[in-house]
């Protein structure tokens, strides 16, 4: 069997070329390749529960709103509107949660 030879200058040249390509891509496209690869690796390693975590926090924040005992659905909706006037995605999430809650209550 042929013995494999490791070349240190070859490895250094490879690393330099890789770095050069990474910098060139970042300069040309604005994408950080190394960070992107790390993100893919991270997504694969057990950090897939983020959506559930975001959902839990959304529910907790909605429950954490100060609601008066005599507040009705419309008034709470108005308050959510006021607080999320420039937060469209969050507003949608809140509305969906409230609708689901109402449906569960009426069912």
């Amino acid at each position: 069997m042929e013995e494999k030879k490791l070349s240190v200058p070859g490895a250094l040249v490879g690393a330099l070329v890789g770095l050069g390509v990474e910098i060139a891509i970042r300069e040309l496209t604005g994408f950080d390749v190394v960070k992107g690869i790390l993100e893919i690796v991270g997504a694969g390693f057990g950090l897939i529960r983020i959506d559930r975590r975001i959902y839990e926090s959304t529910v907790r924040l909605l429950n954490g709103m100060d609601v008066e005992p005599d507040d009705d659905y419309q008034r709470i909706l108005r308050r959510i509107d006021d607080l999320t006037v420039d937060l469209p995605e969050l507003r949608q999430s809140f509305l969906k949660l409230m609708e689901a809650g109402l449906r569960a209550k009426t069912a």
Partner: peptide, 23 residues
């Protein structure tokens, strides 16, 4: 801040923090 893959999740978390600040 420079998230590539989870940009939408990042935005949602930012909005959650903003909402809590307002409350």
């Amino acid at each position: 801040k420079g998230a590539l893959l989870d940009r939408s999740r990042w935005k949602l978390v930012r909005q959650l923090i903003l909402f809590r600040c307002r409350v």
